[in-house]
């Protein structure tokens, strides 16, 4: 009985995995096909056409886009970690007037969709001269209500006595923050970091608006550019570019899946 149940479970799980992952497998396979094979509707390439990848890197400055995406995502990730952890520290460990009210204000920004501020933000960034600058792609995203909330939830589990012990030992707030709170909260920082990295890497609309040339353009918009440049037949090249876009985040996700799942559910529900 048990074995039957287990086997059928495995069969169902495998079937579902194949269906769900099929688009990516198909894209991966197509990235090695010649234009001819794609048109004939083959599922597997007869020979591996690595030149699709070379072609993709030649058609558009894909390497430049890759570096841009990595740089932008890392800067936003560390920016969010710094700014949110500071705010979360103030909400948990510092006593100040209007703390509750301010926290509600922070949380309320989660209800405001990004689109609601998109038009004036575009104007602001334009006036700051940040169009086609890394600054325009990173700094507006440093403050994160979600990040502050997530970290606050974790910081609250740190015993108050730890702060009091530090106070008595004459350890100042900044030192306590840097040397105790941050190291102790490593796991939730990693969770928030992975989440921020993924969302920044995958951002689409804002980079589309604020990058009109190739210098700071991230991969997503680069892919759009490539896709609109390529003739209909060159699917292999486009799929090769898709792989370049998708594989880094897939790796991040595979490594961080457990973290992310725990961190996000905790953040969402407590």
């Amino acid at each position: 009985m048990r074995i039957v149940k287990q086997t059928s479970l495995y069969v169902v799980l495998t079937a579902l995995s194949l269906v769900l992952f099929f688009p990516m497998l198909y894209a991966f396979s197509a990235s090695f096909m010649s234009a001819q094979e794609v048109l004939l509707g083959h599922f597997l390439p007869s020979t591996l056409h690595f030149e699709n990848y070379l072609q993709a890197f030649q058609d558009v400055p894909l390497f430049r886009f890759l570096i841009n995406s990595i740089f932008i995502s890392l800067v936003v990730t560390f920016g969010v970690l710094a700014v949110s952890s500071m705010a979360a520290y103030a909400f948990v460990f510092l006593d100040f007037k209007g703390r509750k009210l301010l926290f509600v204000l922070f949380i309320s920004t989660m209800m405001i969709p990004w689109e609601a501020s998109m038009i004036p933000n575009f104007v602001t960034v334009q006036q700051l001269g940040w169009i086609n600058r890394y600054a325009g792609l990173t700094i507006p995203f440093f403050a994160s209500a979600f990040g502050t909330f997530l970290l606050r939830q974790y910081f609250k589990t740190i015993p108050k006595e730890m702060q009091e012990a530090a106070q008595i030992a004459g350890i100042g707030h900044f030192r306590f923050f840097m040397n105790v709170v941050l190291p102790v909260s490593k796991t939730s920082l990693v969770t928030l970091g992975i989440y921020t990295f993924l969302t920044t890497w995958n951002a689409y609309l804002w980079p589309l608006l604020t990058t009109t040339d190739e210098l700071v353009r991230p991969l997503q918009i680069g892919l759009r550019q490539l896709q609109s440049q390529e003739t209909v037949n060159e699917w292999g090249v486009v799929m090769a570019a898709v792989m370049v876009v998708a594989v880094p985040t897939l790796i991040v996700l595979f490594i961080g899946q457990k973290h992310l799942q725990k961190g996000l559910t905790d953040g969402a529900l407590k």
Partner: peptide, 20 residues
């Protein structure tokens, strides 16, 4: 006086050790 200037040390019920 702030706690650090009161010439005292304190031991807490949950010990308040730094786990890391």
């Amino acid at each position: 006086l702030p706690p650090s200037k009161r010439s005292l040390s304190m031991v807490f019920q949950n010990y308040a050790l730094y786990p890391h």
